[in-house]
């Protein structure tokens, strides 16, 4: 079944089993491997993308449900929040292995778009769905705060 949607601003059409999770369409069909597979059951957050601006776990999002939607992945995320988050991540060396960081960054960008000056509780609420096995959490928290401060100017 042909399904059409935009990915990072570009129109795409795929002909796959409509139940295929968006994750595998992005990775296997479209070659966008920045979105990561971690668990397949929305437990780890590594596959987080934006669907019409809202963060979603692409590993449990059947592609048929996003017909006509705008998808943003780590490769295409942009805007002031994204720039601030990516910069803050690099500045204090948040990543260790880096594998989960696509999902962490997407969740963090979504948080800052929602709450410009998040408290620790806001950060917990937005980021608890993203596991980092290297456990870079202390730096993730700090980088979000740094990015928020930069956006405030």
């Amino acid at each position: 079944m042909a399904i059409t949607f935009n990915v990072n601003g570009e129109p795409r059409e795929v002909d796959v089993d409509p139940n295929t999770p968006l994750l595998w369409v992005l990775r296997d069909e479209l070659g966008l491997t920045g979105t990561k597979f971690g668990c397949g059951v929305a437990q780890c957050g590594a596959c987080t993308v934006f669907v019409d601006g809202m963060p979603q776990r692409s590993c449990v999002t059947p592609v048929e449900l996003i017909n006509g939607s705008d998808i943003t992945t780590i490769e295409g995320v942009e805007g002031p929040e994204a720039s601030a988050i990516q910069k803050a991540w690099v500045e204090i060396d948040v990543p260790q292995c880096g594998y989960c960081q696509s999902g962490q960054i997407m969740s963090a960008v979504a948080l800052l778009r929602d709450i410009s000056d998040p408290t620790d509780e806001d950060i917990d609420g937005a980021m608890t769905g993203n596991i980092c096995r290297c456990a870079t959490y202390v730096r993730i928290r700090q980088a979000i705060k740094n990015a928020a401060a930069e956006l405030k100017g």
């Binding site: 990775r27 296997d28 070659g31 966008l32 491997t33 920045g34 979105t35 990561k36 597979f37 992945t73 780590i74 490769e75 990516q86 991540w89 690099v90 060396d93 990543p95 880096g98 594998y99 960081q101 696509s102 960054i105």
Partner: peptide, 26 residues
């Protein structure tokens, strides 16, 4: 800073699971 920081934060970093070939099977 980490040499792979830019690639990691922009989704460009390639892990084993990201390896792709045009005629690859899964």
């Amino acid at each position: 800073g980490l040499v792979d920081n830019f690639d990691i934060t922009t989704g460009r970093a390639k892990y084993g699971i990201d390896t792709r070939f045009d005629d690859m099977l899964y």
